[in-house]
Design a protein around this nucleic acid. Structure first.
Lengths: 352, 352
DNA sequence: CTGTTAGCGCCTTCAG
DNA sequence: CTGAAGGCGCTAACAG
């Protein structure tokens, strides 16, 4: 027993499929109320559900919006996803989800799959990687997107543009001022901490991580402080934990050499890493903020109840998702797709 | 410039569309290698991307799997979503996402939308509500699902079955033993805590919340303890925070009346609520676990670094997502779709 | 093994 | 205002 079709509804109502279509779906011209009534009744009694696939094929617009994230379980991405989902709902469209793991090659696959499904637009929330090994995959991703746009697709990239993507029609970037914000964070921290700085960063070439690292260093420099040593690790909680473990030993050595040494300050390029690092420090007996200060980036909602409260940079994640989605839907959000954030100093970096 | 079609590829290769289709897509019989080669070249040079909509229409199978959650930014759901996504990828299918907010009416809408898109299967991860006001919406949801199944769709519901849904072919329930697990949790807690118990629960009628509450009460009873008083609030962090605030006053009163009163123990029906409650208690100066013990449910990954470590019940969320997805894909996962969890006692409910 | 012929379910010109 | 006809892009029976 298959779902009933428009033709069946039409037959039951004693009209032509064309008329039935006009009644049931949003057509320009409305048939007479009497006949419309019959059609609607027929539709209900048959439990008619329009076949969106067929509609999409006929009007070449699917009402689908593709969302690419690294990992939907990562709170950073799920917050953005919520924003995307919200707008999609408002616009009566549906979200197609793809978690990729983060390589440009996987993202290209996802984009291709979305293109195959004729998604009207695509939002890419993953961060760009400029690692040498990813050069050719990046090029292919850019090519794929370019083709998608030329075929009338709209794409919005969160964070920074896709490496090598042409600024074609329909290609938007929701810029996140990572560098500027972490520069400010560094400035604020340098004002209260006289000790040494360390940065826990993601793998080299990960754009978001690189930008935040660079901005932080610039801030330190502006404050007349020496550059921080950078520990590279994976861009997630585990990475933070490992790096935290290493730093713990160094911090212990520091205090052993000089019990009155100035308290060091750690900047992890995202909150999840900061939390991991904090866990490692705690395990080694280093208390925060007494033995070391630590700050993150993103201001992940789920992590706000963490104690000591984590200093971080608040990013309007949901809003980013909404903005990205709107920008692909023709709604002119204004040329300036730059979002803003703000430094949030809390207990984890308290003085003293 | 529209995307090129199979017909164009065929023409360029000098073959019929049928042949081109056989080469490019997974057909049973493979054409000769020489001609296949030509077709492939033509496809590449035209940048051919098969139109999944058209394919779906023709073979009446979309490769789509619909996922219904209350809120994708809630770590409980995003963990399940990760599992779903994972399996979908393995099976080369795509995930359609719908966040509903949690009412049966919205879920019905989502299911209808998935049905319209001819999703091959649907996974519903939200919790059921048996509130009186939801009775008719539940009925409609059940009817919608039933129809979907009769039309050949597969559905998997996480947690508990949809109220009133018929046990038709293609309808699976991934049962979560909420009651049993919280019963065990209560038993374990009763063994170390002699004080009073409180339960912070969601709104009445929310199945998951009700099951966990009931199980906990049963456990207390089995341990020879009086039933715990239940505070109903919303099923999220805010709800936990509010309830925590109320309890804080009562706990303070308790200690004021008797400075040596036995420490009370709070069970929040999910981790996110527990964290909210803990935050409220802390703000009112009640320390955990010294002034009060608290436990949650779910063992949310992002919350594991919370201190004091939260006692909870570990649920294999990702596995649940995987299982649900597999069960809808014909892969016979075995009749027993019951997952298991385990009590995890940690510092937040430490004795003394 | 290839090509031809019908659809899949719907929308949208066109006539009537 | 309604109905008939063609087409969206692809697949799956049939012929050849």
């Amino acid at each position: 027993m298959a779902a009933s079709t428009l033709a069946e509804v039409a037959k039951l109502a004693g009209v032509s499929p064309a008329t039935a279509s006009r009644v049931l779906n949003g057509s320009a011209r409305k048939p007479g109320e009497d006949i419309a009534e019959r059609v609607r009744n027929a539709a209900v009694s048959l439990g008619y559900i329009p076949n969106a696939q067929a509609q999409a094929l006929a009007r070449s617009s699917s009402g689908l919006i593709g969302l690419v994230v690294h990992d939907i379980a990562d709170p950073y991405f799920s917050a953005i996803a919520r924003g995307v989902q919200e707008v999609a709902r408002e616009q009566r469209r549906m979200v197609l989800l793809a978690s990729t793991g983060g390589t440009p090659e996987e993202e290209r696959e996802a984009v291709a799959a979305f293109a195959a499904r004729r998604a009207d637009s695509i939002v890419i929330a993953g961060t760009r990687s400029t690692q040498a090994g990813h050069a050719s995959a990046n090029k292919e991703l850019a090519a794929e997107l370019d083709r998608y746009c030329r075929n009338g697709g709209h794409v919005a990239v969160v964070g920074q543009g896709v490496v090598g993507a042409k600024e074609t029609e329909g290609y938007h970037v929701v810029a996140v001022p990572n560098e500027e914000l972490s520069r400010r964070l560094a400035l604020d921290l340098a004002a209260i901490h006289i000790g040494q700085f360390w940065i826990i960063a993601g793998p080299e070439g990960l754009a978001t991580s690189d930008e935040r690292t660079k901005g932080f260093q610039r801030g330190l420099e502006a404050a007349g402080r020496p550059a921080a040593e950078v520990l590279r690790t994976s861009f997630n909680r585990e990475g933070g934990y490992k790096a935290g473990g290493k730093l713990a030993s160094r911090i212990q050595a520091l205090y052993k050499a000089d019990p009155n040494a100035a308290k060091p300050c750690i900047f992890a390029v995202n909150d999840v890493m900061a939390i991991g690092a904090a866990a490692a420090l705690r395990e080694k007996g280093i208390r925060i903020p007494n033995g070391a200060a630590i700050a993150g980036f993103d201001d992940i909602e789920t992590l706000r109840d963490f104690r000591p409260a984590l200093s971080t940079v608040r990013l309007p994640l949901e809003e980013i998702g909404r903005l990205a989605t709107r920008s692909t839907a023709g709604e002119d959000v204004g040329r300036t797709l730059e979002v803003t954030g703000e430094v949030a100093l809390r207990r984890s970096t308290e003085k003293g």
